[in-house]
Amino acid sequence: MARIVFTANLARHIDCPADEAEGATVREALEAVFRTNERLRGYVLDDQSALRRHMAIVVDGKPLRDRVTLSDPISAASAIYVLQALSGG
């Protein structure tokens, strides 16, 4: 299962420890996490389920390419980091 790590700054607002999830894409892995932590979805994704403008995701050391549908492929060994983009201040 892929490992998903959320920025520690999120923990001030919502409980979001590092998690593991199955899926073929970043979307599938995140959705698996959101199924057990629905409120977290709105902190990471906007109303259209795209990545928030000032959030960033790094997959295996590379920035997410598809910020709209989050279709970037992952493997069971992937590490997904959900971070704040510095553009957000």
């Binding site: 700054n9 607002h13 709105g42 902190y43 928030r52 000032h54 959030m55």
Partner: peptide, 18 residues
């Protein structure tokens, strides 16, 4: 929040909840 979007909180009986 600059990164995490707009949120609403409500306080009743002295306690805030999102």
């Amino acid at each position: 929040h600059g990164h995490f979007g707009a949120k609403l909180h409500r306080r009743s009986n002295g306690r805030w909840e999102e």
